[in-house]
């Protein structure tokens, strides 16, 4: 019980930092440095306490310089394809040039959303307890100022 409460605090903190970065950027879209600092802190906290971040959060952070990727403000989002077959969404960070490529697959669903993952949670009681605050974290991240672009890319 105590461990779960402690986790909850940390998740609240991560949520706050993520929202703060959004807040700073919405106030002044050119103040990339401060938003990057908050995201960097968020990333290091998650690494120290060994907390998993939701993919929707991870996809809006730059891997290289930790800045928040918002299409049009700090990142460019383009559709690319290879030989008429597969299409990708390419997000490119404007400050460092790092790009991340996501495959457009409408049938793709995250491991957390799949029924097998739920089965696994029921088998082992301990991981399921750890996962509970994660769900809360996802709910908390949704009301942040801008909807993340990553989920839309998977649905296109």
């Amino acid at each position: 019980m105590a461990a779960q409460m402690k986790d909850k605090e940390a998740y609240q903190r991560l949520n706050y930092l993520y929202q703060a970065a959004h807040c700073v950027l919405s106030q002044n879209p050119e103040n990339v440095e401060l938003a990057r600092f908050y995201c960097f802190t968020q990333k290091t906290i998650a690494r120290r306490l060994v907390l998993r971040q939701d993919p929707s959060v991870k996809r809006t952070l730059c891997k290289k310089c930790c800045s928040l990727l918002i299409p049009g403000v700090t990142a460019t989002t383009r559709q690319r394809r290879k030989k008429n077959k597969t299409r990708f969404t390419v997000m490119r960070c404007l400050s460092c040039g790092q790009s991340k490529t996501l495959l457009n697959n409408p049938d793709y669903s995250l491991w957390v959303d799949r029924p097998e993952a739920q089965m696994e949670q029921q088998k082992q009681p301990e991981p399921s307890r750890k996962n509970q605050p994660k769900v809360k974290r996802r709910d908390g991240s949704v009301p942040s100022s801008k909807p993340s672009a990553a989920p839309s890319s998977t649905s296109t």
Binding site: N28, E30, E33, L34, R36, S95
Partner: peptide, 16 residues
């Protein structure tokens, strides 16, 4: 890159 340094023109109280 001055990755975390806030530029002087962004140092305004109302923004925060």
């Amino acid at each position: 890159m001055k990755i975390f340094q806030i530029k002087p023109e962004h140092q305004r109280y109302e923004l925060f």
